[in-house]
């Protein structure tokens, strides 16, 4: 029986599809190829050359862009001589008074704190690995945290929100984009590229066995 066959393999050499529980013998695919679950087509392993370095640079860029976007205005409004500019913090903290304050906290977290935390955690965890140093303390837990934060990082949704807001008040006043809007627009692309380069299995393996362990075949 196949099932007893695979049960005899050391579990450390197996990989389970997180979506449908199918198990396979883990094997690093060829450069540029991806290992996909045969049953539910979830991508299991997708290594890319020098991905670690590229992800770190993307994270550092995202961090700079978010920090910049906090201080520069993203939209400017004018009507009948009145002019107003709004920065990201203004928007995040715009719900004041009573229960709406909760919303301020949530919006700040979703568009500023979570994206920043993800970038910092990624640099902290992957940085030493890329430079052939041992994983930093708590790396496994912190990478797990970065993964858990992924759906809650909503900077790119905020960028689309800016565009909708622009149209929504077009007849009320004159609106124009500030520098922070373009920073957010760039962030949308960075997030997409970041997710394309990130091979989670390779990171977990490197954190467990050290970066060199599988390097002969393909770097994380």
């Amino acid at each position: 029986m196949h099932s007893t066959d695979i049960a005899r393999v050391d579990p450390a050499h197996l990989i389970a599809c997180p979506q449908c529980d199918a198990i396979y013998r883990a094997r690093m695919p060829e450069q540029g190829e991806r290992a996909v679950c045969a049953r539910c087509h979830t991508v299991l392993i997708a290594p890319r050359k020098r991905a670690g370095m590229i992800i770190i640079m993307l994270s550092a860029t995202s961090l700079i862009l978010v920090l910049g976007a906090v201080w520069f205005p993203f939209l400017k409004i004018s009507r009948q001589g009145f002019v107003n500019e709004a920065t990201l913090l203004d928007a995040a903290l715009s719900f004041t008074g009573g229960p709406l304050l909760l919303l301020s906290i949530a919006v700040t977290a979703l568009i500023v704190l979570v994206p920043m935390a993800r970038a910092i955690l990624t640099i902290y965890v992957l940085g030493p690995l890329v430079f052939d140093r041992p994983a930093p303390p708590g790396a496994l837990r912190l990478f797990a945290l970065a993964e858990a934060l992924r759906p809650w990082s909503m900077a790119e949704i905020f960028a689309l929100g800016c565009a909708v807001a622009l149209v929504k008040v077009a007849d009320l006043a004159h609106l124009s984009f500030g520098p922070a809007f373009w920073m957010f627009a760039a962030l949308v692309f960075l997030t997409v590229i970041h997710d394309r380069w990130m091979c989670r299995w390779s990171v977990w393996e490197s954190l467990e066995h050290g970066y060199g362990a599988r390097r002969a075949k393909a770097p994380a």
Binding site: L75, R79, Q80, F82, A91, L160, G161, A165, A173, L175
Partner: peptide, 21 residues
């Protein structure tokens, strides 16, 4: 779906033009 909440946050921060709007 959070986009609508963000639009409200943006508009609230931005459209504070005294009596004009």
């Amino acid at each position: 779906s959070m986009i609508d909440v963000f639009v409200v946050a943006i508009l609230t921060a931005l459209v504070q033009l005294n009596l004009a709007a």
